[in-house]
Simulated assay, not measured.
Amino acid sequence: MSQLETVAAFVEGAPPGELADVVADIKVLAISSPDIVSELAPAFEKYNEEQLITVKLPGSSQPVLISSHNSLGDGRYYDAESASSFAVDHATQACREVQAARDEVLTFPQKASAVQSHIIEGPQADLVKSTSKSLSTYVKEHFANAAYGVYPIESDSKIAVVIVANKYSPNNFWNGRWRSLYMVDPAAGNLEGSIKVDVHYYEDGNVRLLTNKSVSASILSGTGAGIAKEISAAEKKYQEELNKGFVNLSEGAFKGLRRQLPVTRQKIEWDKVTSYRLGQDIGGGSSKR
């Protein structure tokens, strides 16, 4: 693996809101190659698309997503709901997304540029619109701050449904991101996708939660409301699974990391703690004077 490939892997694996820190480390580690960061444009693009980074369209308060599913190529993307396309500078956007994390804001730090009209046409246009409308209601009800997108996949008459929600708290040493992606086949009446959760906690340590939950469901109605309903059910179920898993972890594995009783298997009588001789009375051994 070349040095550039190794460094690109660091970029692509950066935790939510921490890309600037990774880039800073890269500059230190690759001090003999000062131009290496300028060669990372493809890695920044891959990171932005996979992490579903958001931008703001001029004159709008609604965030729009960057993903492979709404890419037009050459750094341009489209948003079906606003019927527009826009350009993104991937390197700049990646760094400004990090600044948003440091400021603990949940907004979209960069405005897209070169906005143009982009009308969605084709057999899936109506389903895209109805799904987007129903999804808006669901997202606003269940996420504090999130962005979503619905995009037609013309090659196989499917639609892609994408949701991302970020929560940054670097002052408390943690950042997190929820990403969900679903491919909907209206003709077959099914939905396939995944839910990914990425949370990094780094106070006096380095703990990262990475999940990838596969989702499969049937869509009985074949409407936008029916699609949103199945997504809601799947994500509610996964949230409950996560909550249950955290409880089991706390009550099981974490509890097993420390003793419930001292090695003597006797509880300490705290009202007599000042009279204990540490080596002899608690540890069970002989004390030296």
Rank of each mutant, 00 (worst) to 15 (best):
M1W: 07
S2K: 07
T6A: 09
T6F: 08
V7W: 00
A8P: 02
A9T: 11
V11I: 15
D21H: 06
D21L: 12
I31H: 14
P34G: 03
P34I: 02
P34A: 04
I36H: 02
V37R: 09
P42T: 06
F44W: 04
E45M: 03
Y47R: 07
N48S: 08
E50N: 13
E50D: 09
Q51G: 01
I53S: 06
K56Q: 11
L57M: 10
S61A: 13
Q62V: 10
V64L: 03
V64A: 04
S68R: 14
N70W: 03
G75R: 08
G75T: 04
Y78F: 14
A80T: 05
E81C: 00
A83H: 13
F86W: 04
F86E: 07
A87P: 06
V88M: 03
H90T: 01
T92Q: 12
T92N: 12
C95S: 13
C95A: 15
R96F: 07
V98F: 13
A101I: 02
R102I: 03
E104K: 05
E104R: 06
T107D: 15
Q110L: 14
K111V: 05
A112Q: 01
S117F: 08
I119A: 15
I120L: 09
A125N: 11
S130R: 12
T131I: 11
K133C: 13
Y138C: 04
Y138H: 13
E141N: 14
N145G: 09
A146Q: 07
A146I: 10
A147Q: 00
E154T: 06
E154N: 09
I159Y: 04
I163D: 02
I163Q: 03
V164R: 14
A165I: 01
N166E: 11
Y168K: 09
S169C: 11
P170L: 03
N172W: 12
F173D: 05
F173L: 02
R177Y: 01
R179Q: 10
L181C: 11
Y182H: 14
Y182S: 11
M183D: 06
V184E: 07
V184Q: 03
V184Y: 09
D185K: 00
D185Q: 01
A187R: 09
A188N: 08
G189N: 07
G193W: 05
G193D: 01
K196E: 14
K196Q: 13
K196Y: 07
V197H: 06
D198L: 04
D198P: 08
V199C: 07
V199F: 11
Y202G: 06
Y202T: 05
E203G: 05
N206I: 08
L209N: 05
L209E: 04
L209K: 00
T211I: 01
T211W: 04
T211S: 13
K213M: 15
V215H: 00
S216K: 12
S216Y: 08
S218C: 02
S218D: 07
G222E: 02
T223P: 06
G224C: 09
G226N: 08
E230C: 07
E230D: 02
A234T: 10
A234N: 05
E235K: 00
E235F: 03
K236V: 15
K236I: 14
K237E: 15
K237G: 04
E240P: 01
K244A: 13
S250L: 10
E251K: 10
F254S: 12
K255C: 03
G256T: 00
R259N: 10
V263F: 06
T264H: 02
R265N: 15
K272S: 12
V273Q: 02
Q280P: 03
Q280W: 01
S287M: 10
R289A: 14
